[in-house]
Design a protein around this nucleic acid. Structure first.
Length: 458
RNA sequence: GUGGUUGUAGCUCAGUUGGUUAGAGCGCCUGAUUGUGGUUCAGGAGGUCGUCGGUUCGAGACCGAUCUUCCACCCCA
């Protein structure tokens, strides 16, 4: 036998049972997206490189899968570039396309390209795979699905509140009780950087701050210092390290800290409005929590930032994230279009539901009825019966060959078929069929003329 | 991209300081049971020990490379 085939690192095959479970999650998310008024679009799996490159920071560029040009691409490279052996200068000459890295940037490109056909505010959702040339870990793949909902062309904070409700609705429907939606605002982070005199180091500051729960206050101070933030500045920011209390209490503390920063106060005001709105409407099972250390996410966020973490006890990175971006379409030449979006991480939600045993049982069921095959004449009668069942939307099939009954029953058992139908010589002669309930083992005889009596039981 | 870790039957895993023919449980197949699955009993099949190379009289075990898994960074869903 030749070498066993394999699939690339960080990719997966999905069995029928896994697909059924994934579809269950997707259907749930889709249902709520539509109830909230979002419309689906799809975009190509690969884009022109210049659409993607530079949109996710330096780190992001490294993680984008590049697609090699077609044809004899290497002969078209000039000798100087070729012999320089520098990937950065060689890359644009041999690769002009790349696999999409997320759904937000392609969406911004879509909005700009179709701006004349779109009615704003435009609410779209998109459920498609994305690719990252990352090193895989648990819940971290090189090919995975994002489920995004975005609104562009409206900048009321009502949207923020609605999207928080949407998170709550989806996770409640999935029975994932106790998820936490963390909320922050980029303007608050900017304001703090301004107040402590470290605007130019905003990214370094926020990245370090984000690690607070992981490496502790000492670790964060150390990292900030290493990035060139002065001791005095860090001391000014110190209240952040120990901030606690309810969301509104934290906002009060922020107000005193940010009093001199216009942008910071604006961020606080936005958060306050979002929180009071959400509290007025109420959430079903999710917790909403202000977290000033929340900074993850991409450079293009300008206002609210969201991140959802699984209920306590499940170790999994974030299962969703999003935020407001005021000028994403500006990169592609369309100014003054504010957008806000959230993303659900399908693959991680799957792992969380599995860990907590929250998938409904019926997902395993592939068919409702299996007919035992007793031979040519009998199976013909079975086929007629099955046809009628199928017309009633019942998933049914006849075992294809007349092998031993034991084998057929075992097959039915393994496929978790709830009912097995038997039409043998005896039944055929009497114009009847026997239905066996595979759970209880009980059998009942029905007339071929009145299948309704049977279908009612399903 | 950096450092570490894992790989043995379809699945989960044993396998002693390197020593004859590599094991278990579950699953699968056959029979007890020619019209009845799940439970039970008896028997059976299934492995170039991730791959390639090296050390050795001898390698599943030691060394190197490579692929893969998981983990910590980086970053992120």
């Amino acid at each position: 036998m030749p070498q066993k085939p394999s699939i690339p690192k960080g990719t997966r095959d999905f069995s029928p049972a896994e697909v059924a479970r994934r579809n269950y999650i997707i259907q749930t998310i889709k249902k709520h997206f539509e109830v909230y008024g979002f419309q689906p679009i799809e975009t190509p799996s690969f884009e022109n490189s210049d659409t993607l490159m530079g949109k996710y920071g330096e780190e992001g560029d490294r993680l984008i899968f590049k697609i090699l040009n077609s044809g004899d691409f290497i002969s078209k490279v000039d000798d100087v570039t070729y012999s320089s052996k520098k990937s950065s200068s060689l890359l644009p000459k041999i690769s002009e396309k790349a696999l999409r890295y997320d759904l937000t940037v392609p969406f911004a490109r879509y909005v700009v390209m179709h701006q004349n056909e779109i009615d704003f505010p435009f609410k779209r959702y998109q459920i498609q795979p994305v690719w990252r040339a990352d090193r895989p870990q648990k819940g971290r793949f090189r090919e995975f699905y994002q489920c995004d909902a975005d609104v562009v062309g409206a900048n009321s904070v009502l949207q923020e509140a609605e999207l928080i409700q949407l998170y709550d609705a989806v996770f409640t429907d999935l029975k994932l009780v106790g998820s936490t939606i963390k909320l922050n605002n980029r303007k608050i982070l900017s304001g703090i950087a301004e107040v402590i005199g470290a605007q130019h180091l905003l990214i370094d500051f926020t990245v370090a701050l984000d690690k607070l729960d992981k490496i502790g206050e000492e670790g964060v101070r150390k990292e900030m210092l290493a990035k060139g933030i002065s001791e005095l500045a860090i001391e000014k920011a110190a209240p952040l390290f120990t901030m606690s209390g309810s969301s509104l209490e934290q906002l009060t503390q922020l107000k005193s800290l940010l009093g001199e920063s216009e942008i910071g106060m604006q961020g606080v005001a936005e958060l306050e409005e979002i929180i009071t709105t959400v509290e007025a409407v109420g959430l079903k099972t999710a917790n909403l929590q202000v977290d000033v250390t929340l900074a993850r996410g991409l450079n293009y966020y300008t206002g609210a930032i969201f991140e959802v973490s699984a209920p306590e006890g499940v170790s999994m990175g974030s299962i969703g994230g999003g935020g407001r971006y005021d000028d994403l379409t500006g990169i592609f030449g369309l100014k003054d279009v504010s957008g806000i979006g959230i993303s659900f991480g399908l693959d991680r939600i799957y792992l969380v539901l599995e860990a907590l045993g929250l998938f409904p049982e019926h997902l395993d069921k592939s068919i409702d009825v299996l007919c035992i095959n007793f031979g040519a004449k009998e199976s013909l009668a079975s086929l007629k019966l099955i046809s009628q069942l199928r017309e009633n939307g019942i998933k049914a099939e006849v075992y294809p060959t007349a092998t031993k009954m034991q084998k057929q029953m075992k097959y039915a058992n393994n496929r978790k078929v709830p009912y097995v139908i038997l039409i043998g010589e005896q039944e055929l002669a009497n114009g009847e069929f026997v239905a066996k309930n595979m759970d209880t083992g009980e059998q009942e005889t029905y007339s071929m003329d009145s299948i309704a009596a049977f279908t009612e039981k399903l």
